[in-house]
């Protein structure tokens, strides 16, 4: 256990907890764009920067990656130095993504009216990397990653070709903080323009509506060991089938026998 101070309030915490986790547990707000509690810390957006002081020394650190180790440090989540850095970061992001609501809101909170910097892009992606990490760490697919470097950095499928790995789970779209990844389901396919990828959809064997991307069920089955036949049905029919077959549940095969 270590005792540290955040904004002059004393907290006791286990060691190795990151400053961001601790602050959020204690209800102290720190803005962050590239952080998600289900994913590994990344430290790229730099918005969660805080000032850490010990004795007469102080430095700026990103709270999402900084582990509590030292007893007695004083952390300031809103010092003038921190605020100034965040202002510039938001100005830079606003110049990159002037149309993104999330960034507009952050800018408004800071009292900024537009970015003063000369280059203005119309990007929707802030390169937080949440999509890349969720695909790799949670879904286990690595269908998308970063490509190019520096100012030309992007997230994409390999060579921007339609992905053969993608199972169309849309976890990437779910974690995307800016809405850059859009999912369009039509009659036959799920289309994600951002990934240049189309995935065929599967029809419910019972009622015939499309309900899931073609490869998702098998992939999830492989990961979760669910009873196989359940996934041939849409949510509605699945519930119905489960209800109807409750009495027919086969204990040995651990599956529900569906009446035709």
């Amino acid at each position: 256990m270590a005792v540290i101070f955040i904004n002059d309030r004393e907290f006791q915490t286990e060691e190795e907890v990151t400053l961001l986790e601790l602050a959020r547990q204690k209800g102290i707000e720190i803005p962050a764009l590239c952080h998600h509690q289900a994913l590994s810390p990344y430290g790229a957006c730099r918005l969660c920067t805080v000032e850490v002081c010990k004795e007469d020394k102080s430095r700026l650190v990103t709270s999402c990656t900084y582990p509590v180790r030292e007893e007695g440090i004083s952390v300031y989540t809103d010092s003038p130095r921190v605020k100034q850095l965040r202002r510039v970061i938001v100005k830079l992001l606003l110049a990159r993504c002037p149309q993104v609501k999330l960034i507009q809101d952050l800018a408004e909170e800071m009292g900024l009216e537009g970015s003063p910097f000369p280059l203005h892009d119309q990007e929707e992606c802030i390169l937080c990397g949440l999509c890349v990490r969720v695909c790799s760490e949670v879904i286990g697919k690595n269908a998308v990653s970063f490509s190019y470097r520096g100012a030309g950095r992007k997230v994409s499928t390999p060579f921007n070709e339609p992905s053969e790995e993608c199972v169309g789970c849309t976890a990437c779209a779910f974690v995307c903080p800016t809405g850059a990844i859009k999912v369009e389901d039509s009659d036959e396919t799920r289309y994600m323009e951002f990934w240049n990828t189309k995935i065929p959809l599967r029809r419910c064997k019972e009622c015939g509506i499309t309900y899931t991307p073609e490869n998702t069920p098998e992939y999830i089955l492989g990961k979760l060991e669910l009873p196989k036949n359940l996934l041939d049905l849409c949510e509605k029919c699945r519930r119905k089938a489960v209800a109807e077959s409750l009495s027919n549940y086969d204990v040995t095969s651990r599956s529900v026998i569906i009446k035709k």
């Binding site: 430290g43 790229a44 957006c45 730099r46 918005l47 850095l85 510039v88 970061i89 830079l92 992001l93 110049a95 990159r96 802030i126 390169l127 990397g129 970063f146 190019y148 470097r149 520096g150 100012a151 030309g152 950095r153």
Partner: peptide, 11 residues
């Protein structure tokens, strides 16, 4: 030569 990972350096 920037890798482009963090906002201040890239943008």
């Amino acid at each position: 030569e920037s890798c482009g990972k963090c906002t201040p350096c890239r943008e």
